[in-house]
Simulated scan of single mutants.
Amino acid sequence: MTKQNQPLGYSRTQIALHWGVAGLVAAQYLFKDSISQAWGAYIAGREVTFDPLIMAHVVGGVAILLLVIWRLVLRFSRGVPPAPEQEPAPLAFVGHLAHLAFYGLLAGLSISGALAWFLGIEPAAGLHEILKMALMALIILHVLAVAVHRFAFKSNVMKRMMHAQD
């Protein structure tokens, strides 16, 4: 996509998907204890009893994967706004890589979780834990980057995720 074709902002759908995925990811972290305990019981050979929070975690993971795919389709079909002018080119490149890493980590978490839960693949569960920590680090970096944009570069990139440019 050339600079002339780049949108000036995100669409309503892109913004809704961003915040929807963020909410689902937050819920996955906050309500993970039931599925963690169930996995531990499964590994120990004990019976896993039904818990609605386990089902919610599984459904949340599937929903995240589907929303990530939708976000990627929109990213490549509609495009994304350019980096703010105040941002140095190397940081813009790192930002681009970070966004791609988000998509990869979110998809990888969903897939590794499904492989562990539905097929009992223990290495997938280990990978899921590693990816979970990497995603948390990337989320922290993402939030810090918004603060740097706001206070150091004096650009309000947060506004782009609040107000649509359809």
Results as ranks from 00 to 15, higher is better:
Val58His: 02
Arg12Pro: 02
Ala22Cys: 09
Leu30Pro: 13
Ala137Phe: 12
Leu17Val: 11
Gly23His: 03
Ala101Tyr: 07
Arg46His: 06
Pro7Asn: 06
Met162Val: 14
Tyr103Ile: 06
Ala98Gly: 11
Ala134Gly: 10
Trp19Leu: 02
His163Gly: 00
Val48Asn: 06
Phe151Pro: 04
Ala152Gln: 14
Leu74Tyr: 01
Leu17Asp: 04
Gln86Cys: 06
Ile54Tyr: 00
His149Pro: 08
Ala134His: 01
Val25Pro: 13
Leu105Thr: 06
Ala89Cys: 00
Glu47Phe: 05
Ala63Arg: 09
Ile64Thr: 09
Met161His: 11
Phe93His: 09
Gly120Ile: 08
Gly23Cys: 14
Leu127Cys: 09
Asp51Val: 06
Ala137Trp: 04
Ser34Trp: 07
Gly95Gln: 04
Val157Tyr: 11
Ser77Lys: 10
Gln86Tyr: 01
Arg46Thr: 01
Gly126His: 14
Val21Thr: 12
Ala147Arg: 14
Ile64Lys: 08
Ser36Cys: 10
Ile139Glu: 10
Leu17Asn: 05
Ala125Arg: 12
Ser36Ala: 15
Pro7Asp: 09
Ser36Asp: 14
Trp117Cys: 07
Tyr42Gly: 02
Val73Met: 05
His142Cys: 06
Val68Cys: 05
Met55Lys: 09
Gly40Thr: 00
His142Phe: 10
Ala137Val: 12
Thr49Asn: 09
Ala114Asn: 01
Lys32Arg: 15
Val73Trp: 13
Leu97Met: 04
Ser110Phe: 01
Ala101Phe: 06
Val73Phe: 00
Gln6Ser: 07
His99Ala: 05
His57Pro: 01
Ile69His: 08
Ala16Val: 07
Met162Phe: 10
Gly126Gln: 13
Gly126Glu: 02
Trp39Lys: 03
Trp70Asn: 00
Leu138Met: 08
Pro82Val: 08
Val146His: 14
Leu67Pro: 03
Gln86Lys: 11
Lys154Asp: 04
Gln6Glu: 09
Leu119Thr: 12
His163Trp: 12
Val58Pro: 01
Pro90Gln: 03
Glu47Met: 13
Ala145Ile: 10
Ala125Tyr: 14
Val73Glu: 00
Tyr103Cys: 02
Gly79Trp: 08
Met136Ile: 15
Thr49Glu: 06
Leu131Tyr: 09
Val58Ile: 14
Ser36Lys: 14
Gly79Pro: 03
Leu91His: 03
Tyr29Val: 09
Ala22Trp: 13
Gln14Pro: 08
Ala92Ile: 08
Val143Gly: 10
His142Asp: 00
Trp39Ile: 15
Leu67Trp: 04
Trp117Met: 02
Pro90Ser: 06
Tyr103Arg: 06
Ser11Val: 03
Lys3Gly: 00
Gly9Arg: 13
Lys132Met: 08
Met55Leu: 13
Ala22Gly: 15
Met161Phe: 09
Gly79Phe: 09
Ile69Pro: 02
Arg75Trp: 03
Leu138Gly: 07
Val148Glu: 04
Glu122Arg: 14
Trp19Phe: 07
Gly9Thr: 05
Val68Lys: 03
Phe76Lys: 07
Ile139Thr: 10
Ile69Lys: 07
Arg78Trp: 03
Gln86Gly: 13
Val143Thr: 01
Val59Arg: 00
Leu24Asp: 01
Leu67Gly: 00
Gly23Arg: 13
Glu85Ile: 13
His142Pro: 08
Lys154Gln: 14
Val157Ala: 12
Ile121Tyr: 13
His57Ile: 01
Gln14Ser: 06
Met158Cys: 05
